[in-house]
Computed example of a mutant assay.
Amino acid sequence: MKALVYTGTNSSELRDVEAPVAAGGQSIVDLSFCGICGSDMHAWHGHDERRIPPLVLGHEAVGTALTGPLAGRRVAVNPLMTCNDCPACDSGNHHLCGTRELIGMRYPGAFAEKVMVPDANLTVLADHMSFSEAALAEPAAVAVRAVEIAAGTGATADSRIVILGGGAIGVLVAQVLAARSFARPRIAETNALRRGMLENIGIAGSYDPREETPEDGSVDLVIDCVGMGATRAAASAMARPGGVIVHVGLLDNEPGLDTRRLTLQEIGFFGAYCYRHQDFATALDLLTGGKVTGEGWTEIRPLDDGAQAFIDIDQGRAPPKIILATG
């Protein structure tokens, strides 16, 4: 079968690879679409020791089950694989399982014509839902998790909210906030193409953080969808006393977080990683109901153009989300 293979730092190519074979409790999915995630870019840049080339990346996938209990059905893939038998899994926090894995990390991913996943990781799609919209389910689940954490820390509908990063997760966080009736946030984004898209789709105000920034100590809730030293420093400064920072992005682990200010001003700092099963289901519900959509900020390209898509994202010539048509 055809697959886009990560071959080394800043390098990928289309190859013929062996098709997956399912064992007990596993299904083969004939893939239709798979989105390029920021973590795929992180690996492509050579910054993820867990993703060792040559490897088929990709985990934001949808398609049709070929085998297993849902054979013949249109499905969304939850790429998070866990043991289902530990305190974290038993409490519903599968994303905190000590043996968690994602397809496209140490297992072959979904930038391919087919992928193998556990039967339990498939969800049947509503008949009216397009594959291209359903391909946003996984990143939307990340956004749902981030907003759930924010709401649990006391953020309210009228909170002043700033999102750092206008990539896919930032856009989806803004849409999930809107679906939950939060006030319209502002999004910090350095890429002019993305700022234009954000203004056009109307989900948030945008600004270039190199030219302006919110007043120090003025923001109730900061959601960092970049996760680099500079954004942690910006979040530390703009959060108000008693405010909250939700940290989603994982770009680097460089210094920047002002722990002294966080302590003196009792600013809460919460990590948000991946999602619970319920978050994935909520994301699909939001997409099915049209409350979250890819309209105006996504682009579909053929799998054959996948190598160039990575280059275009790297060089800032791409919208917040490129989805590869794999089938």
Rank of each mutant, 00 (worst) to 15 (best):
A140S: 14
P302C: 01
G166N: 04
G205D: 15
G205R: 10
N253Q: 14
L66M: 11
C83L: 13
T259L: 15
A178S: 05
V142N: 09
D314A: 04
M41Q: 10
M1G: 11
S218A: 12
D158W: 11
G46W: 03
G152P: 06
L193N: 04
A325W: 05
S32L: 13
I223R: 04
I163Y: 00
L70S: 07
A183E: 08
I28W: 02
T326A: 07
S39A: 06
P108K: 06
V5K: 06
E60Y: 05
L177R: 00
G202K: 10
I36P: 00
I203F: 13
G152M: 02
C225V: 03
D158N: 15
A155Q: 06
E254N: 15
H47N: 13
H247P: 01
K291R: 13
P53K: 02
G167W: 00
D158A: 13
K291M: 10
A22F: 11
M129R: 15
D305N: 09
V115N: 01
A135I: 09
C37H: 02
Y207M: 06
E13M: 12
V21Y: 02
G327L: 06
T9C: 03
A234Y: 09
G205I: 12
G296I: 10
D90G: 02
G92L: 10
L122N: 14
I300F: 03
G268S: 08
E189K: 08
A192Q: 10
E212K: 14
L80E: 08
C34H: 07
V176F: 01
R106A: 08
A179Q: 01
C34M: 04
A76S: 14
F131A: 08
D258S: 09
L286F: 10
R180P: 00
D305Y: 09
H45S: 10
I300K: 07
D216Y: 12
V5N: 09
P118A: 14
D305E: 15
R276L: 07
D30Y: 01
Q315R: 12
D285Q: 07
G289W: 01
G296C: 10
R276D: 02
Y107F: 15
Y275I: 09
D305H: 09
C89K: 03
P319M: 03
H95A: 04
R240E: 03
I322H: 03
T82M: 02
L102Y: 14
N10G: 06
G196E: 05
Q265C: 13
L102V: 12
E295D: 14
L251I: 13
V176C: 01
A178V: 04
A143T: 12
T213C: 11
D224S: 04
P20Y: 06
